[in-house]
Design a protein around this nucleic acid. Structure first.
Length: 613
RNA sequence: UGUCCGAUGGUGUAAUGGUAGCACAGAGGUCUUUGGAGCCUUUAGUCUAGGUUCGAAUCCUAGUCGGACAGCCA
């Protein structure tokens, strides 16, 4: 039926929206499916948008269709080019290698095409043809660009005129306050505007003069003439156009009247030939208006239909653009790409890969139930993804010196270490070993709790890839702090040695003190201390003061050349990635070595240790 | 006291009138030169009350609880 793309690794998702798509295709209502992802460029994309992107592009991919990237930019006072650029970057990043052939873009500068269908006038702007099977070249085809609702201002204006001509819209002189008052309340009908019966010719003239800029902001609006007594407040003569003498990031000063969301969105969908317009639950109440506008205009092609699903709520974080913006502006985080934020740029900088986000989106499903998703689901998806591809390395976060008293002071060995036990093709590397080492401070306990099987006085542990050592002596400094551990190595216990197979309970990571490379490591924790920070009251009161911990770690030497594009697992510690932005800002050889911890390893010991004795 | 939408283990999600399944989380075990990963086992669910039906998570009615909606935001 469709020229199906490569099948998904797992079975394709099933949900009520995909059911509708399947049924529409089976019934022959559409030849191909066209969805759209319509962000307003007034902020950065977050993981909630990722859910929507994966849904819309996923459907395009599964059904051999297309998903248009469209900026819903009808409010010049809130939108900026910075956001347009970040959104494009984030979308390409998320769908890259997965659905990019289904990304609907249009020829640069191409306006909607005026055509005649069965003698009826029409406007249409389809996406450029799907690219050939080969993956698109690095960077964007320069001849293509995303869609913009603001590109349709001329057509939208024409449709508004049509509504006026049909007696279905009027220019209203009520102030914003009065408009509110006349609207009534959900449980109380509104009353009609005194301007509702304005003659068509006068409406036409006034609307034209609104467009020409003859009236100041807020003095007049264009309203649909529907039903002020409707139980649905959105049908009580909703505003279609408002006056805003403001420069628009995309259309400059060409317009001083701007269409409202409800008027622009359904018609933008129609113009682009969208078949399924998928949005979040809060627009459910708007659907009658979406349909009303389309049904009362002369539109010869099949009409798009709106479907709503529940937005993503994730535990211990916030998704509101307004609140994210507040954190950025008030300096609670370092920027939109702060790795603690659920923004796509933040997650990317933290080291999360798009593959993980796509699996996450697949796992949480699509419903109309307003759910709170456990962060553990995200964390699981991130770990699974990283576990498969991360290069294993040895690094010590909080160093404790160990001296091997029976190991020659002038000797250095290069030991073989496995890069990824999950992937033999990742090969091995050499790690230097010598008399003086660092181990993790918390891997030694003078008074070990029950079931602690790391190093203790007189105890033995395996040093990964190296020897079994025994702790002979604890050396203290003047203040009574542990200065170093003096240990003896079982020199026959190295891989291949006579005592190599001796069983010791614990295996520790380590680095050679003389060879270790210092680096800044940033450990991130959840941004908030409660599952629903914005449930009530001031969400900032729940900010986690320990969401970022910065320390200087000691790394095995190979990490000196770590690539920001790769992912690493510091053994027994977690997944880390070199901070790309810091790296980019650094000057050549002086470029600082900074690592972000994407996420820790699952820690069953922490759970065990937390159990009441 | 308005309209619309929703409700399945702790969490999230399947089952489209025919054996309530999966994932996450939890518990136990196994393996382990990562207390990671893997493998095995396991706890736990259809909001309530009626009705239709041979048979209801599913259809109907009423109720309960939850959410969205009163921007010249999207």
């Amino acid at each position: 039926m469709t020229n199906a793309p490569a099948p998904a690794a797992a079975s394709p998702p099933s949900d009520f929206i995909r059911d509708v798509v399947t049924a529409d295709l089976a019934a022959g209502r559409h030849q191909t499916i066209v969805t759209r992802f319509p962000p307003e460029p007034n902020g950065y994309l977050h993981i909630g948008h990722a859910k929507s992107i994966c849904l819309n592009f996923g459907i395009a991919r599964e059904f051999g269709g297309r998903c248009n990237l469209r900026f819903d930019d009808t409010n010049p006072t809130k939108e900026e080019t910075e956001y347009v650029e970040s959104i494009l970057t984030d979308v390409r990043w998320l769908i890259g290698g997965w659905a990019d052939p289904h990304l609907g873009l249009k020829p640069k500068g191409q306006p909607p095409i005026a055509q005649t269908l069965n003698g009826r006038p029409d406007f249409y702007l389809g996406a450029a043809p799907l690219p050939p099977d080969s993956a698109p070249a690095e960077g964007e085809a320069p001849s293509l660009e995303p869609f913009h609702a603001s590109d349709y201002f001329p057509q939208l204006y024409a449709y508004a005129v049509q509504l006026i001509e049909r007696g279905l819209a009027y220019v209203c002189d009520l102030s914003a306050d009065d408009t509110d008052r006349y609207r009534g309340a959900p449980d109380r009908p509104g009353q009609e505007s005194p301007f509702r019966k304005r003659p068509i010719a006068e409406n036409l003239d006034l609307f034209e003069r609104m467009k020409r800029g003859e009236f100041p902001d807020g003095t007049r609006t264009l309203r649909a003439k529907i039903d002020m007594a409707s139980p649905n407040v959105w049908m009580r003569d909703p505003v279609l156009y408002r006056i805003r003498h403001a420069e628009h990031h995309h259309t400059g000063n060409a317009w001083c009247i701007y269409p409202m969301y409800d008027f622009a969105h359904c018609l933008s969908d129609y113009l682009e030939g969208i078949t399924h317009s998928i949005c979040t639950l809060e627009f459910e109440v708007h659907r009658p208006l979406y349909d009303w506008i389309l049904e009362h205009l002369d539109l010869p092609r099949p009409l798009p239909h709106q479907y709503e699903f529940a937005r993503l709520n994730l535990g211990y974080t916030i998704m509101s653009k307004r609140k994210l913006m507040q954190l950025v502006r008030e300096g609670d985080v370092a920027g939109w790409d702060d790795p603690r934020l659920p923004t796509l740029s933040g997650l990317r900088r933290r080291g999360v890969r798009p593959e993980a986000l796509r699996h996450f989106a697949y796992n949480i499903g699509i419903t109309k139930y307003n759910a709170l998703t456990d962060v553990a689901v995200l964390e699981k998806a991130v770990r699974d993804d990283l576990n498969a591809i991360a290069l294993r390395r040895l690094a010590v976060l909080r160093p404790l010196k160990v001296v091997l008293t029976n190991y020659p002071a002038d000797q250095t060995e290069e030991l073989d270490a496995v890069n990824n036990p999950e992937d033999s093709a990742a090969g091995t590397r050499r790690v230097p070993f010598s008399r003086e080492l660092f181990i993790e401070r918390e891997d030694f306990a003078e008074q070990p709790p029950p079931k602690f099987f790391r190093l203790r006085p007189g105890g033995e542990v395996r040093l990964k890839y190296a020897y079994i050592i025994r702790c002979d002596e604890v050396v203290y400094d003047d203040s009574g702090q542990i200065l170093e551990l003096r240990c003896t190595a079982d020199l026959g216990s190295k891989t291949g040695g006579p005592t190599a197979t001796r069983k010791v309970k614990g295996t520790l990571h380590w680095v050679s003190a003389a060879h270790a490379v210092p680096a800044e490591v940033r450990l991130y924790d959840r941004l908030f201390t409660v599952p629903e920070p914005d449930a009530a009251g001031d969400f900032k009161a729940h900010l986690n003061p320990h969401s970022l911990e910065t320390l200087t770690a000691r790394l095995e030497p190979s990490l000196k050349d770590a690539c920001p594009k790769l992912r690493y697992q510091f053994e027994r510690l977690g997944y880390f990635t070199r901070d790309a932005d810091t790296n980019a800002a650094g000057a050549g050889a002086a470029s600082p070595l900074v690592f972000n911890r994407t996420i820790g390893l699952k820690d069953t010991w922490a759970k065990e240790a937390a159990k009441p004795a």
